[in-house]
Design a protein around this nucleic acid. Structure first.
Lengths: 228, 228
DNA sequence: AACGCTCTTGACCAAATGGTCAAGATAATA
DNA sequence: TATTATCTTGACCATTTGGTCAAGAGCGTT
């Protein structure tokens, strides 16, 4: 199940490396610890500067390790980046549960908004990494977007359409609705400096996220004619 | 009216350069032409790779000029980047017209959504440039976000609140509402690869944007209890 | 034609880039 | 304790980075 591939190049398998483990369940404790540190540091750097703009040196410094040591563990900058994308897409996939026509639209949509918001909140740097990747033309995520994710959206869209037919919600285009939810939630990670600058705060707290999530649920459900 | 400044560094004035003109109305025709070419090329490159990730060499190639020639015109990578941000913020500011409590909420909000969408559509690379800048921590736009833009939002927020008091709309937090509109529209530039991948198209056309804009207007107005 | 200005561009620079390698340190196993 | 596998790291490499410079080409004015 390799999620990531690249446009003009062969796919990169997450296993089967000469030295790297990258997912192997059995790895020395020290390797596990260092890989974890490196992944966290790299996520921060790539999220801020993108793939091209992020340097191995910067990652190494953030991780508190010599550059050679970082490369010893991850093999290459590219592989590190891909591993991060895989990790983020795994989190994303873990959030996407199935729905059926017989489910309650209000419940489903609200759960959808809340879980997407929770994901954004739990992994803001991962969200930004994803944003940077897509912003740069999604060179590594093309196949995922056009395949797995597309199928997921279309399955969801069919259910929404059926709900509309049954008069359970307004006949809105489900795809635009899904994009609306994605963008509105994603915003609080990707545009955090803007949000903080305008609200004058230096961080958003638990109650802010509660308030925002409630606001989004209320407005969107009402906006597409779903009463709860 | 210098919009741009940088966190740990002195502000960069857009005028008063040794050779660059950057806004001077009188500039040789050839200079004007080349600067235009360079700006367009640079916008594409920076939008895709961010400030750090975008190289002068790549910009030069995109512009079809030798690197030295690019630097002759723009002085430095940093100055080029700042000029692009200034240009985009000028476009943004040109869109932000004033509103009053006596205006019609439906009209104002719909015009707001439509003009923001039009801006995104007219300048997708500029939108992406802005997104990349904010994603990277907004090092050059901090002051703008915390100053001018914050004031603009808060002025708008007061009017929204008054509308709510008069029962013209639901009592929603105006700031979250504004963020919702910004994010939902911005999405179609910043996440274009995702949008195209999922819809299976290779470009969005006039009617797509019409449809999306109508959808957003309908849902958001209804969602915050504004009837038209 | 001669002057001065703008423009063009290859050569060049120090610094940073991603990545390799070998030699030594440490840990795990016998 | 001896041996093997993992880990650590500075030295090093070719390439790319942003930027300078000087020498010349083009061009408008007198």
């Amino acid at each position: 199940m390799t999620v990531i591939s690249e446009v003009g190049s062969a796919p990169i398998s997450s296993s089967a490396s000469s030295r790297s483990s990258a997912g192997d369940s059995e790895a020395s404790a020290i390797r596990q610890r260092n890989e974890e540190t490196i992944l966290e540091a790299a996520e921060a750097v790539f999220a801020q500067h993108g793939y091209r703009g992020g340097s191995v040196q910067a990652i190494a410094e953030a991780a508190g390790l010599p550059k050679s040591n970082v490369l010893y563990y991850v093999g290459s900058k590219r592989r590190l980046y891909v591993a991060l994308l895989e990790r983020m897409m795994a989190r994303w996939n873990a959030m996407l549960d199935d729905i059926s026509v017989d489910d309650d639209p209000a419940e489903v949509l609200e759960a959808f908004i809340r879980s997407k918001m929770a994901l954004t909140r739990a992994h803001p740097r991962g969200s930004r990494l994803f944003a940077a990747e897509v912003l740069g033309g999604a060179p590594f995520l093309q196949d995922y977007l056009r395949g797995e994710l597309r199928d997921w959206v279309q399955a969801r869209a069919r259910v929404f359409d059926q709900w509309a037919e049954r008069g359970l919600m307004d006949p809105v285009d489900p795809v635009w609705l899904i994009f609306l939810i994605w963008s509105a939630t994603q915003h609080y990670a990707d545009f955090e400096p803007q949000v903080l600058g305008i609200t004058g705060r230096d961080a958003l707290g638990e109650q802010d996220y509660q308030e925002i999530t409630d606001f989004l649920c209320r407005l969107i459900l009402k906006g597409c004619g779903i009463c709860r």
